[in-house]
Design a binder for these strands. Sequence first.
DNA 1: ATGCACGGT
Length: 763
Amino acid sequence: MSDSTKNLKRSSAEREGVQVHKRVKTDGDAKMDTKPNPYLAHYNDNEVVASPLDEFERHKTTALQAAKAESEDNNPWTGKPHSQQYFGILKTRRDLPVHKQRQEFLDMYHKTQILVFVGETGSGKTTQIPQYVLYDELPHETGKLIACTQPRRVAAMSVAQRVANELDVDLGEEVGYSIRFENRTGPKTLLKYMTDGQLLREAMHDHDMSRYGCIILDEAHERTLATDILMALLKQIAERRKDLKIIVMSATLDAQKFQTYFFNAPLLAVPGRTYPVEIFYTSEPERDYVEAAVRTVLQIHASEPEGDILLFLTGEEEIEDACRRIGLEVDEMIRESDAGPMAVYPLYGTLPPHQQQRIFDKAPAAVRKGGRPGRKCIVSTNIAETSLTIDGIVYVVDPGFSKQKIYNPRTRVESLLVSPISKASAQQRAGRAGRTRPGKCFRLYTENAFKKELIEQTYPEILRSNLANTVLELKKLGVQDLVHFDLMDPPAPETMMRALEELNYLACLDDDGELTTLGGLASEFPLDPALAVMLISSPEFYCSNEILSITSLLSVPQIWVRPNNARKRADEMKQMFAHPDGDHLTLLNAYHAYKAAEQAGDDVKKWCHEHFLSFRHLSSADNVRAQLKRIMETHDIELVSTPFQDKDYYTNIRRALLAGFFMQVAMRESSTSKVYKTVKDDQLVMIHPGTVVSTPYDWVVYNEFVLTTKQYVRTVTNIRAEWLLEIAPTYYDVDTFEKGEIKSALTRITEKIRRRQAMKGGR
DNA sequence: ATGCACGGT
């Protein structure tokens, strides 16, 4: 610290007579020491050290001031000397496009409460803007943190690590991150990266987001459900809390929409740093896009200079098939025309992490000295469009399709459908070719189709989802009037109605649409409302331990592994865990066996492999279970079990399933049929062939409805219709049913119960 | 007689 900057001016807090430590606790309850004890002075690590930040006046700082402070020998945030690498990183930071506009950014930030910031890839916005805010917001004086949200966990973690390095602090100290299962922040934290969902969860218990002085929403153009809700909430909070600053960061040129939405907020745009990408279209539409894609990849390999290829397809099977075909054709090209070697890698979300890592391998070398150079070809889902960046891609092949979630409010079914992508998506894909040098993008559709047929932006998720969970969250967030809640793209009224109806049947909302005690409790769990209600009700059925396990297993991807080359053995192994009454109980059996193996000290990974179970998903279910258990304990929800020897052990569990899933029940059409009809929606469905249920039961409860080649219900368990009338009497009021087999069946059962009770009473 | 794109609490 140079003497010239020492004590030049005291911070505003000090001028007002408050003793401020250089590092103030930011959790709001930091206690100020009253009088320092002179006898303990040598213990006092809070000794006031002058810092260039002392001269800073909040919301009046300049880029020059910050640049000076950043160039000091000592770190202004910690007082410790800067490391050697710090100055190296500082130099690269100052080369970023956004650096030139630091003063312009500050000028705008000072004048406005809400700011829209548009920065293309490579501008440095995600790492730099929060730091610019840090040097102006001075959270160490105000005790109010800066938050920066990300749609994905990996991004929150890796960006936080990067920024901690840039600021020369330890991750988890001044800079931290918070995601589900992991909170790496501490009392010193000033800047916090987090997932958008995590900030939303926090807001449930702090409606004003009062811990924060500035909230930065990053990647807002992705329009995740959580981002959309946060935007609408922040609009409201901004009116109540004039001291809160908001920055909405987006990558698209669609900034106008964000500006208009946020009371005509000012806009700052920063150019990115990418290389030009030449776009090619087909002259005629392609009939078979997979075939066309394979052909295009081979043509690139045969005639284009060195550089890796990225091909976008829609799903696992399509990708594996294309990889096989490309591999075979390339082998032939090598034999017949001395082509270079090519490594072909599939890439999709459900691929195990170590296989995903392979995409970062170097392209293969030429087969022999002087031979044609090799390249790699990655065949990927949309995961490579936003979540994963692969350097070295020069050629992109874009057939123009992706799988998208769609929601039908009438049947309450969400499903995946292969659909044309949007213009924004196509641009994003093309951009992947120009990250390291100029590239080429081959679109397998006509230029006319691009201009006239593709929509501008992919529909935001909020328009494509079942909103039961969202509506429950909003109620818990204190949003009274859902109809006038100012979302950027309001969902269809029918979707809202369906969600309210579902929550009312689950007794989470009363008839006036107000949150009930059960609803309030359900919103505490990171689960869909039906699962949360089932879990909360389970002590009444003496099986909350078991329902807790089942809930966790239903919240992770399928634990059953069924490799193509060992289907039969995998199915036989699954039969070992099979329970005659259905798949939920079979899941529980498999989980109990897994825990037993773990307790016996077996190599669990090996045990899972031998039993065709996914170790990854079972251990993540265990993780979820621990989290849910903690929430149950905080709310005094009892953990109980029926003794295993009791004949009602499994019956109690089957009945408890209905406490949450009474709306997901199907009845067999006739005693000879394999077709079932869902209750109230009258959808004809088959039981998914992956089931262990062999005897066709008359009534089943199902966990999910899947729409593929046929309509299936998956993960089903046998139930008795009497239970429905007993556990969900309102929903199963026979008078509310349309005429048909289900109504007649329920009427017969009601009468049977009545006769039985009359006989008991007559005795 | 078997299709989960990608995310998140």
